[in-house]
C-alpha cells in the first residue's frame, strides 16, 4: 500500500474516533472511540517512522500501546464501578464535576 493510503486510513480512523466520541453516549463506546483515535495516531506515527527511517517513533508506539492497555484496564474497571453503583454508565451519570 502507498504511504498516502496508509495516512488516509489513519486520518479516517482518527476522524471516526472523534465522531464516535461525540456521537455516542455510553461510556464504553466512548472509550472505544478514544482507543480508535489512538490507533489512528499510532498508525500515522509508524508511517512517518518508516519514511524517516528512524526507530524512535516505533519505540514510542510500543510505549503508547502499553500505556493504552493499562489505561483501558483502569478505565473499564472504573466504568464497571460506575455502572454497578448508578445502574448505567452513560456520560450523564458521571457529571459530578459540573461547576
Amino acid at each position: 500500500m502507498s504511504t498516502f493510503s496508509l495516512l488516509l486510513l489513519s486520518a479516517l480512523l482518527f476522524a471516526g474516533g472523534i465522531a464516535g466520541f461525540f456521537v455516542r453516549r455510553d461510556l464504553i463506546t466512548m472509550l472505544l472511540s478514544a482507543e480508535i483515535m489512538l490507533a489512528g495516531a499510532n498508525l500515522a506515527l509508524l508511517v512517518f517512522s518508516t519514511i524517516k527511517k528512524s526507530i524512535e517513533a516505533e519505540a514510542a508506539v510500543l510505549v503508547i500501546l502499553t500505556v493504552a492497555a493499562a489505561e483501558v484496564a483502569v478505565a473499564l474497571a472504573a466504568i464497571a464501578v460506575v455502572a454497578r453503583k448508578k445502574g448505567e454508565a452513560t456520560e450523564k451519570t458521571v457529571s459530578e464535576l459540573k461547576g
Binding site: L27, M30, E91, K92, V94, S95, L97, K98, G99
Partner: peptide, 9 residues
C-alpha cells in the same frame, strides 16, 4: 464555571 458541565464530551 458554567463551562464546567461535567460532560466528558
Amino acid at each position: 464555571s458554567r463551562l464546567q458541565t461535567g460532560l466528558l464530551k
